[in-house]
Amino acid sequence: MNTIAAYTKFEILGAIRIPMVFVALLFLPTVGMLLFVVPALGDDPTAAALSTGSMCLFTVLIICSAQYGLGIADARMKPWGGYVRTLPGGPLPKMISMIAMSALFVVLGTIPLIAIAAIGTKATASVGGVLLGLGGLVLAIVPFSLLMLAIGYAVNPYLVSVITNISPIILAYVGGLFTDPHSTSGFVTHVAPFIPTRGSAELVWAAIGDYSPQPLSMVMLVVWTVVLGFLAYRAYRSDEGKRYR
């Protein structure tokens, strides 16, 4: 418990002393809200609410990619990260503290988006729906963080920054976060259920509005979580820090 508290404090101190990071994290979803959701869907209460949910989930993806993908790659590059691995803590305290931090970031990060939706659109959702939606977003941290952990540990640290910059946009796009959740045609609609982002998105949509999750997406969500968990664990075990050839 002591160790987990120490890691959490460590993460928070490291994060709050560089506040510009938060601006960078929230930039894309905010632009998405202002340029697409507000002008195009602002007048449709249901569509605006679901799209806001999509943008919030996009934020979760970006937070996870920064925190786990980049964060892990950074720790692998720095001698300090290697040193921490020699301490008798094991991976658990770090993971738990990082997940706690993610939950905090997600809640804080979605506030501006929900505010934009409330002020700039006719989006409607019950208070219970919004809270449930936040729960769905926090739950989405699990598959996203596992994915980014696997990338952070397995990929050459220099490449990780590229991958973590691009992958949230691609995963959000093919997962159908930028399209109408109810759409029944088009490439994305057919691919989306097989993408790790889709299952989480459907849960969030179901929480905040009129949407019923597809069984296929739910099954794939479980499959992805198990697979990504395995990959992340294996990548962690075989990681030895920076490698040269």
């Binding site: 160790t3 120490a6 890691y7 404090k9 460590f10 101190l13 490291g14 002393r17 301490l87």
Partner: peptide, 14 residues
Amino acid sequence: TLRAGEVIEFVAAH
């Protein structure tokens, strides 16, 4: 960005 005392505290927690 961490203070020397904070780093020691972090390591001590292990």
